[in-house]
Amino acid sequence: MATVLFYILGFTMLAATLLCITRRNPVHAVIYLVAGLFALALMFYLLGAPLVAAWQVIVYAGAIMVLFLFIIMMLGLAPQDVPEGPSWQRWGPLALLSSSIMICTLLLIFKDPMAGQQIDDFYLAPQVLGEALFSRYALAVEIVSFQLLFATIGAYMLGRPLPKGEDQ
């Protein structure tokens, strides 16, 4: 049952992503992407990662995508501001490139003997993950927290009003 659900979710996710990347309007693209991310969060859950799944919903679908929408709205991108979407002439070489990469990736995956093996049932309790995070990976957590701090400062610096004369 879980296995079937996993594959259904996987293809849902790919379909939503495909729709997302072909949209001209970023608002539509973000909506499709949110759908894809929900599906991905459920896949995480099925792979025994309830905490990651929860955060995927909260941080990705909740915060980051809302941030995207917020920026789009803040800049007031009227439909005429949205640049021309992908011209269909560009599809040709791109399709070739993407499909080649895709084939290579899949071939690489399935050539490996590990690919045929099954994933056993696995469930990681959030407490265990939390313990690992704050004991073995405490330094990494600190570094990432600094990263977030710097990003905040950077975003603040970039967001200040432009000096006079630098417009346009």
Binding site: T17, I21, L46, L47, I101, T105, I109, D112, A115
Partner: peptide
């Protein structure tokens, strides 16, 4: 039972779509 290869294939496909 989920095949590991399939999970990786989904991930790869997602990556290539991105």
């Amino acid at each position: 039972m989920i095949s590991f290869g399939h999970a990786l294939a989904f991930a790869g496909a997602l990556f290539v779509l991105g």
